[in-house]
Design a binder for these strands. Structure first.
Lengths: 344, 344
DNA sequence: TTGTATGCGTTATCAT
DNA sequence: ATGATAACGCATACAA
């Protein structure tokens, strides 16, 4: 039942027979209000479906109740998943979300983000990978005293400013999976080495492999661009040589999909002749043919935690104590990986 | 060069030696300002990098410079594409975008949207399909006098409140394509018939087919749910009968992908034994194996036009005259459709 | 062409 | 525990 004219704090005050200052106290949960007064006010609020005006509130309190989402990620599926999780938390805590895609490689990237923040008046920002790896951005935000939380894949910041998916451990799990299936000739398509996360995954992979006695030759270690197309490029290279790997790990599902495409064109059967493992478990990982064995990054959980942290920071309640910081990915086994049939 | 303390309209007024009323005039592009005065003020603004506070501005003018994006669409790719196009327009015109996924099937759907609008104080909303088909929502918005623009696939509203992709014509093109390839045994997986757009596509298809002497038997007309999974269901039904169609049109790419999956499992070769045509041309249409022949919906163009219309409506400038209302999809031919090898 | 005064809905500073 | 009253930064009748 929506009332016609907008009901303000003054209306409530008049109706409840108190000053608006007292209503304000109730709205903001101040303890300095008498029992009966509070009850009366709360009833008036409920009865007339009063909702404090965000603009006015922001003007007076220097808050906008707006959160910013900053990203430069070609993966629409990832963005969407994050967005939904963030919005869930927002809805419960009275915040709204303003989105801001940017171009991390451009010169004015930092300024662009700062401008966005001041223009939109967001109270704080959530930063998604790979932008979240930008040291300079984080520093700029800290200097400008803009609350922020990064979602990243390595420990790049204070716990209150970051949420991490532990991908080093995840990589070890992938190596275990491949070894368990009997693969000894393993190749890897890494992500762009300019990204910290890519280096992290590469190191996690090779290190774990070495520890377990698996050696990956130079020519089977290719750097991709995390895009479908780059996956195709790398796969062509890996699958056109004399000796073929029996398994390939790709830094993400997009590139893994590229491998499937090339294998199909070269008439290489997956998983009979080649196992493929991806990373992310994006929406399409389960739909491609064959479906993809992949490391699921718990995107929604990360996004949820990050949002909670950010809002706590904004409201400067007992810091972010009690909110997890590290989340671990886990392997989803599907059709694209199987027992190695090769006799070494 | 960010100044430390926030510079307000008062500062500019003082610096330029005028009243803040005059500065306000300059900000809002009023013609009633002397040449020299304007120059002086503009310089002061530029020099001190003054940006009017959105909150204050909104509080005074009843505007927030926020746009809302309302949708209930499982297709993340679509959302992302729309979002980017909308943001491009927003950035140029000084608006920000607040996103709001909702659940169109739930009872409180209308209230939820209205609450979102009043809570976030958006100046207007963009409504994506299938929510955009809701007559009740549109009416509620009109009654509450909230500016809105719908993106839809049929003429459901006044030109100023809608942007349309003409899908009836598009369907005729698909029929032509299939006929040109010699297909006579054609099946169709429609979208949920509760959606106007689905009915529109179905009618466009069958009508055009009939006109061209192509008859589609009952049992080859299946209703899907627009999801990958429902595509699989329907494909199983179509491909397990005695007589197989030589071509299937699916209401969207998601379901078309489902057909590919089923054909693969049944060892039916595409396009040799079966042609498949989708609708949308989403990001993955070109990546699936085989890549998908599909009708491209010019999503970004629609989104751009819609945003422009909405902002014009908000600023109540010379209505939305001059902004296109109808955009036509066009066919992208890829691997999944080919000449029919069947001899009738 | 320019300025004065008031208001937008809320929070914050003081009092009481 | 509660209330007058002044900000907050801007827009807008109304005046000049």
């Amino acid at each position: 039942m929506a009332t016609k004219t907008k009901v303000t704090i003054n209306d409530i005050a008049r109706i409840a027979g108190v000053s608006k200052r007292t209503v304000s106290r109730v709205i903001n949960g101040s303890p300095l209000v008498g029992e009966s007064t509070r009850a009366r006010i709360e009833q008036a609020i409920a009865e007339h479906n009063f909702q404090p005006d965000k603009q006015a509130r922001g003007l007076a309190s220097k808050r906008s109740y707006l959160l910013g989402l900053v990203y430069d990620n070609p993966d629409a599926l990832y963005i969407d998943q994050v967005q939904r999780a963030v919005l869930d938390v927002c809805a419960n805590l009275g915040f709204e979300l303003v989105v801001h895609p940017c171009h991390w490689s451009e010169d004015n990237f930092i300024d662009d983000c700062l401008t966005f923040i001041s223009r939109s008046n967001v109270d704080g920002v959530l930063i998604l990978p790979p932008v979240s790896e930008s040291k300079t951005l984080a520093q700029a935000l800290r200097e400008a005293e803009h609350p922020y939380v990064r979602i990243a894949s390595a420990d790049l910041d204070d716990p209150q400013n970051i949420v991490i998916s532990n991908e080093r451990e995840a990589m070890a799990d992938i190596v275990d999976h491949l070894l368990k299936l009997g693969h000894r000739d393993v190749a890897m398509i890494t992500g762009p080495q300019e990204f910290f996360s890519s280096r992290e995954r590469l190191e996690g992979f090779t290190e774990s492999a070495r520890n377990k006695g698996l050696n990956i030759p130079e020519q089977w270690l290719l750097e991709g661009g995390n895009s479908y197309e780059s996956g195709i490029e790398c796969a062509k290279q890996l699958l056109s040589g004399e000796q073929l790997p029996s398994a390939i790990f790709a830094n993400n599902d997009e590139m893994a999909a590229g491998i499937l495409r090339v294998a199909n064109d070269l008439n290489i059967k997956i998983p009979e002749q080649l196992s493929v493992v991806g990373f992310d478990d994006n929406l399409f990982a389960s739909r491609v043919i064959p479906s993809l064995t992949t490391m699921r990054r718990p995107v929604d959980k990360l996004a949820t935690l990050a949002t909670q942290k950010l809002i706590r920071a904004i409201q400067s309640e007992a810091s972010s104590t009690g909110i997890e910081t590290v989340v671990k990915p886990y392997l989803i086994e599907r059709e694209s990986s199987a027992q190695c049939k090769r006799t070494t």
